[in-house]
């Protein structure tokens, strides 16, 4: 510190920088999703009325949720390709439940029940009946939302043991 003038310059600069950092933090927080947005997050869906190979679209956190009850034939196919772990098992039935947004850039893939698969029109990605990816660019199958099984109902947003297992073995990732 060579002079009083230097000291004053540095003190001023220091406080200004501090204020600047504070302002940046406030700005970052202002852009954050509101607590009310974060808190609204639980939806219950009933799987009782689902029909085999007919896609039902529900809504959770503003995102489409695909529900596809699997036919016997589809379950066999899933067993062969080792994708049974992607399905939710309730009683004797298997259901594919996934966030209906393409894992590439988030378009909604369309379901073709005759081919038992999904096609994303945006960049040509494809998925099979368990929503596993079969053609790039999507890097992985559709993500499975956090769920808890409650009889024939699913509570989306809550993490039940079946979901935790899927997370742990890498079947899906957190959404």
């Amino acid at each position: 510190m060579s002079s009083r003038r230097d000291f004053m310059g540095m003190a001023l600069g220091g406080f200004t920088a501090l204020g600047g950092i504070g302002a940046l933090m406030a700005m970052k927080k202002t852009w954050d999703p509101l607590p009310s947005v974060k808190a609204a997050g639980f939806t219950t869906i009933d799987l009782k009325d689902a029909q085999e190979n007919v896609l039902v679209t529900e809504k959770w956190r503003g995102k489409p949720i695909f529900v596809l009850k699997q036919s016997k034939e589809m379950v066999e196919k899933a067993k062969k390709s080792d994708e049974l772990k992607r399905l939710i098992n309730i009683g004797d039935e298997y259901y594919m439940v996934a966030v209906g947004l393409c894992t590439h850039l988030g378009c909604i893939p369309g379901y073709d029940s005759s081919k038992q698969g999904f096609l994303c029109a945006c960049h040509g990605g494809q998925y099979d009946g368990t929503a596993m990816v079969t053609k790039a660019p999507p890097p992985r199958g559709l993500d499975i939302p956090p769920f808890k099984i409650d009889g024939t109902k699913l509570v989306l947003g809550e993490e039940g043991p079946e979901y935790k297992k899927m997370l742990a073995d890498g079947t899906t990732m957190k959404v």
Partner: peptide, 30 residues
């Protein structure tokens, strides 16, 4: 939707950044 998703950086999965830009899970009022 598609353009803000670019900011997740592919396998980086910066979903928090995408939600920060949107102020919501999906494009909405914010």
């Amino acid at each position: 939707m598609v353009i803000t998703n670019l900011f997740s950086g592919g396998s980086l999965h910066a979903d928090g950044l995408v939600e920060w830009i949107r102020g919501d899970y999906v494009p909405a009022q914010a």
